[in-house]
Write a protein that binds this DNA or RNA. Structure first.
Length: 542
RNA sequence: GGUCCCAUCGUCUAGAGGCCUAGGACGAGACCCUCUCAAGGUUUAAACACGAGUUCGAAUCUCGUUGGGAUCACCA
């Protein structure tokens, strides 16, 4: 296309690509990856995986990891979404080496990292394509395009702007000038060189060689708002940002021929690609991709609300991506995530079902590694965001709650593993607070008459300063005196001789002390409640 | 529908022609321990989608069938 027309279409002061080639020199880092979310105000769990994987991959190999904001869809753009992206990433311990650090600030020499600020670069790309007859303006209206699509569907043909349907592909320059004179709006399209009936192998790091037809659709590269489409921006950005590995969602695999074509049109070497299968859920017996609209668990904030520790979520995601992580963790219990040698080749490539049981397990194991103090701090941070009442309670009863959290946790060999999400802890420890405590006589294992009998025998013997062994010995003694076996075996030997076992006696105490039939170590609970409260609660059974 | 991807216990998977009587983890069951629960220990059940080939030999290679998934915009 002649120079004057190119200038008329894209503008006069558009720089040549060589300018950008110089501005963004080749990097020395062997591996450069990025995550490129759209600022839609929603952090999908898939986005998080698409961030965790390239981050681990780059940083484990002394590479560079970038964040790029794909804000070319002005309709979906949401205020504050960039901060959400950055803070979610930070919550996951992911700090990009380059990219935005807030809605307005960024770091790195290969920016801007907001696509909406890179129009100069895109224009240079368009200019190059126009000059080399690899791109052209298209004056089709939406109605025309819709009409064509309808016809194609009616004819059972592939929909799309290709072949004879590509109305402006070979429009003479005079026609373009005429339409320009008339002030007709236009967009830019890429002149696809491929042929649909020719197939070619494309490389994907996880899937290997994939045989796909060449692309023959002249896709839109720059929209009427002057912003690029994903495909075009991807080629330009990942080239000039010197990305070596594009790790992205599976939904892009189908457009790989196009993307390679774009790189080839510019004479550039394409990056390596790894496509990640989507996380799925079971719906009516069928699997499907987690949906932003239907599934709350698609949103990363769901896990935060529930109170899953980020470490657990991250570990679960990594586990999902590279299931050999499990073996690695077993062999390297210290900082496993940082040291794990992430392999793109091992990426799961068929789509995994989200397994909450597994997540719960990982979370439970993680929480078990926390001291009471650490757990308290986490609980407080969580509560401040999601449960104000609890936050207040935590602050007012700091030491008391810490001592509660220490039960079967601090200084023990086998840590109690019953907490798997922060949001459930408050309920678990509620009986420590008088205004939340009550018990139900129905929970007694024996009749009330016997309860009183036992309590009358037990209460006078209660010694608050006894140690755990002494305390339990006393419970057994009381049980024995009241006609209960000291242990189950004793009763099994001679079932007729006993009313029950010490277990029944303990249950009575447990119900009176905690209001439940199941609880952590009773002795520890009594110690924390204190002598007066313990006796008060026990006497309530009389 | 076209195109592409995928196919091992319920779930995530190990598995590169003989190391497979198919291994692990989560989940489920049982037993032990035990004042209850949670743990912990021991343990059981549980899978190569189907059909043809190739081969002395197939979970592994080929083809087909079936099933599932992804994708087909001036959204990313």
């Amino acid at each position: 296309m002649k120079k004057e027309l190119v200038e008329r279409l894209i503008g006069k002061d558009v720089k040549d690509l060589s300018f950008w080639e110089e501005k963004f020199p080749q990097r020395s880092a062997g591996i450069v990856t990025r995550v490129a979310p759209s600022p839609t105000g929603f952090m999908h769990i898939g986005n998080m995986i698409a961030a965790v994987i390239p981050e681990r991959f780059a940083h484990k190999n002394n590479g560079v990891f970038m964040l790029r904001i794909e804000d070319t869809d002005t309709k979906r753009k949401v205020d504050g979404a960039v901060d959400l992206v950055i803070s979610s990433l930070n919550d996951f311990g992911i700090v990009p080496d380059e990219g935005p650090v807030s809605e307005t600030k960024e770091v790195g020499n290969y920016g801007p990292y907001f696509q909406s600020q890179r129009t100069d670069i895109y224009k240079s790309g368009i200019k190059y394509l126009l000059e080399n007859d690899l791109g052209y303006p298209c004056f089709c209206t939406e109605e025309e395009l819709d009409q064509a699509r309808k016809e194609q569907t009616a004819l059972k043909m592939r929909p799309g702007y290709y072949g004879k349907w590509a109305k402006y592909r070979n429009a003479p320059e005079e026609l373009i000038e005429k339409l320009l004179d008339e002030g007709k709006p236009y967009i830019f399209r890429f002149r696809a060189g491929g042929e649909w009936d020719k197939k070619r192998y494309f490389d994907d790091v996880t899937k290997g060689k994939v045989l796909m037809p060449e692309n023959d659709i002249d896709i839109v590269i720059m929209k009427s708002d002057g912003l690029p489409t994903y495909h075009f921006a991807h080629a330009i950005d990942d080239h000039f940002m010197r990305t070596t590995h594009v790790i992205r969602g599976d939904e892009w695999l189908a457009s790989l021929p196009l993307h390679i074509q774009l790189f080839e049109a510019f004479g550039w070497t394409p990056p390596k690609y790894a496509h990640i299968a989507p996380i799925q859920k079971l719906d009516d017996g069928n699997r499907r991709k987690l949906s932003k609209r239907k599934d709350p668990e698609a949103n990363i904030s769901y896990y935060f609300e529930q109170g899953y520790p980020v470490e657990a979520i991250k570990e679960y995601l990594i586990n999902l991506a590279n299931s050999n992580f499990e073996d690695f963790k077993k062999a390297n219990p210290v900082n496993p995530i940082e040291n794990f040698d992430f392999k793109l080749e091992n990426l799961n490539n068929s789509g995994a079902l989200l397994d909450f049981k597994k997540l719960d397990n990982i979370s439970k194991e993680f929480i078990a590694t926390l001291s009471s103090s650490e757990l308290y701090d986490r609980l407080l941070i969580w509560a401040e965001q999601y449960d104000e009442k609890l936050a207040k309670k935590l602050k007012e009863n700091k030491d008391y709650i810490k001592s509660i959290l220490a039960i079967e946790r601090d200084g023990v060999e086998k840590v109690r593993k019953d907490f798997y999400i922060l949001s459930k802890i408050n309920e678990e420890i509620s009986f420590f607070f008088n205004d939340e405590f009550s018990f139900d006589k129905k929970d007694f294992p024996v009749s009330e008459e016997f309860v009183k009998e036992i309590l009358n025998a037990y209460i006078p013997t209660y010694n608050h300063s006894a140690n755990k062994e002494e305390w339990f010995e006393n419970v057994k003694e009381t049980a024995a005196k009241s006609g209960y076996a000291k242990n189950a075996k004793e009763k099994d030997k001679d079932p007729e001789a006993y009313k029950g076992t010490v277990s029944d006696v303990a249950t009575i105490l447990r119900v009176l002390i905690t209001g439940r039939t199941q609880s952590p170590d009773l002795y520890a609970i009594m110690q924390i409640l204190g002598k007066d409260e313990t006796l008060k609660r026990l006497k309530a059974g009389l």
